[in-house]
Amino acid sequence: MNRRRALGSTLSVALVAAFGAGCAEEQPPGATNVVDPGSPAPRPTPTPSLPTAPLSGKPVAEEVAGRQAVVVPVRVTPGTSPVGLAEADVVYQEFAESESLHLTAVYQSRDAAKVGPVAEIRPVDIRTVGVLHPFVGYAGGPTGFLNQFAAAELKGVTPTQREGAFPSGQASTAALRAAAPKGGAAPTPVLDHATPGAPLASQGVAPAGKLTIAAPGHPTQTWAYDAASASWRGRVGKVTVSVASVVVLTMEYRTLTVRKPSPRSLPGANVYGSGAALVVSGPSSAKAQWSKPGQKLVCNVTDEGGFQVRPQPGPAWVIYAPKTAKVSVT
């Protein structure tokens, strides 16, 4: 009896083992450690590309790229310490009377808490920025210049009209934007900026490390390339400014006669027409030609092959050099 029970138990264990082995799912040849992968990992969201600012060519937020430009004329003498120039996208320089410079500072991608000393409006401002349709903060001006400003359909404000836009006697670009009429449009690009690795020009490119402009009656202006910051640095009044490119446009200067409110004469750059140009950007220079037929047209700067010169993105300094000036680059 005990022997039959033992034999029965042995057979039962064998049958259970055989049955269990027969029910086990067979794995395909070579497969080991098969694991359920679960839900697939989410793919990373691509970083959205930012638009570029129309005047600097630098990436900016969409709301900044589409806003109106603000312009402030600035008067600089050898003993002046101007403020707010570092934030400008483009600065246009005219050689004015008594060793002074008349600057037209244009702000679009960045704001400056203080800009000054604020100068009167002059024909060079009107003819230069008319194509940009900006809002201008200026310190009045002679009757004839004010009439030209109105005829150009430009909008602006003076400290007398809106004191709050000129805190401490200097312009605030944010305050000027607040004073501007609604609906202002972004400016037209004035330079064709280079893409990474693109040369400054299609031909005639040469190494450059120093640029000098010697205009009669004015201290010689020197710009030097700083490789560490990939920028050109120059002295303006008592401060040093740093820009991505310097554009020198050689042109005729005329004597402007002012009658009201007080008679005087002053030099004025004739920014309409065409002439020779020199552009430095990065460690390179290129000879070029400039052409601006009228107020509402952009000043084109083309190389010896007839193609647009393409400076590096960033702030630019545009110098209106009289034909009597000596311009050299080494």
Rank of each mutant, 00 (worst) to 15 (best):
R233I: 10
R5H: 15
S291A: 09
V13W: 06
F145G: 08
R259C: 14
T220P: 08
T143E: 14
T257W: 12
E26I: 12
A180V: 03
S9P: 08
P40L: 04
P73N: 02
Y272H: 08
G164T: 13
C23Q: 15
A180K: 00
P40N: 07
R177L: 06
L101R: 08
A139M: 11
V280T: 12
A165R: 02
P219W: 07
A286P: 07
V279L: 06
S39E: 15
Q295Y: 14
I319Q: 06
P40F: 07
T257P: 10
G217D: 02
V90Q: 07
K58T: 00
P283D: 06
R3H: 14
L297S: 14
Q221K: 09
P40H: 04
A215H: 00
W223E: 08
V70N: 07
G20T: 14
S202D: 15
G22T: 11
Y138N: 08
N2I: 15
V190G: 09
V241R: 11
Q308R: 09
A175G: 12
A201D: 07
P54D: 05
T52R: 00
L15M: 04
T52K: 00
T47V: 00
S242Q: 02
A276I: 10
T257S: 13
P142T: 02
T52N: 01
C299L: 07
A31K: 06
G237F: 01
A17R: 12
G30A: 06
G30P: 05
G204C: 03
A31V: 15
L266R: 13
V246T: 12
T257E: 13
P207L: 04
V131S: 05
D226L: 05
V16A: 12
V280E: 06
G141Y: 02
E99A: 11
A208R: 00
W290R: 04
G8C: 08
W290P: 01
R110A: 13
